[in-house]
Amino acid sequence: MSAAPRIVLDSNVCLDLFAFGDPAVAPLLHALRSGAVAAVTDAPCREEWQRILDYPQLALDPAARARCLREYDQALRPFAHDGAGETKLPRCADPDDQKFLELAHAAGARWLLSRDHALVVLGRRTARAGWFEIMTPRTWVALEAWRSPGG
């Protein structure tokens, strides 16, 4: 793994990046591709990503789903962990999102980016504990967080 700070992206952020090409998060995509940050994933997060790509409401054809999965695999590096840590992480109101907190903590990520309110509201607690910051991708881009000294 590179010396770049680690970052965890929830599935909605990945949709913005890889399925919708949201220009508001283009700087995040550039930071990933340039190696300014090192995005990590694990088996549960990748499985969720695969499942989401099949949601009928997204209306992604097979070629688009394959492209999204390929771009995800190119941008995010697998991070193996057992999920069992000594640290008592806050509980996310949405149990499906707990896996992102666990990955961010286990990987020593500096940031967890999410548009999910249930995760974002935990940001003060995780930052105060010295673990990682949780914020929306738009906030992260606006703060140019990856450019900060020591970043």
Rank of each mutant, 00 (worst) to 15 (best):
A4P: 00
P5H: 10
R6Y: 10
I7A: 04
I7N: 01
V8I: 08
D10I: 04
S11M: 05
N12C: 10
N12Q: 10
C14K: 07
L15A: 03
L17P: 03
L17E: 03
A19Y: 04
F20N: 09
F20K: 11
G21P: 10
D22Q: 10
V25I: 04
P27I: 01
P27W: 07
P27L: 02
L29I: 07
R33A: 14
A36E: 08
A36R: 15
V37N: 07
A39N: 05
A39I: 05
V40H: 07
V40E: 02
T41N: 14
T41W: 15
T41K: 15
T41E: 15
A43D: 10
A43S: 12
E47G: 12
E48W: 00
W49R: 01
R51V: 06
R51E: 03
I52L: 03
I52M: 02
I52C: 00
L53R: 11
Y55G: 03
Q57A: 05
Q57N: 13
Q57T: 04
L58M: 09
L60C: 01
L60Y: 05
D61S: 05
P62V: 01
A64K: 00
R65F: 00
A66Y: 10
R67D: 01
R67S: 02
C68G: 11
C68Y: 12
L69T: 09
E71D: 15
E71G: 10
E71C: 13
Y72N: 08
D73Y: 12
D73L: 15
D73K: 13
Q74W: 13
A75R: 09
A84D: 15
A84V: 13
A84C: 13
A84G: 14
G85Y: 06
T87W: 13
T87D: 11
T87N: 11
R91L: 12
A93Q: 03
D94S: 06
D96C: 12
D97T: 02
D97V: 08
Q98R: 08
L101P: 06
A104E: 03
H105R: 10
H105D: 07
A106F: 09
R110W: 15
W111R: 11
L112G: 05
L112R: 06
L113V: 01
L113C: 06
S114G: 03
D116N: 07
H117G: 06
H117W: 13
H117V: 05
A118L: 07
V121P: 00
L122K: 14
L122C: 04
G123A: 05
G123M: 01
G123H: 05
G123W: 02
R124Y: 12
R125S: 10
R125Y: 02
R125C: 06
T126V: 00
A127V: 06
R128T: 13
G130S: 03
F132E: 11
E133D: 13
I134K: 11
M135S: 14
T136V: 00
P137R: 05
W140N: 05
W140E: 02
W140A: 08
W140I: 09
E144D: 13
S148P: 05
G150L: 04
G150P: 01
G151D: 10
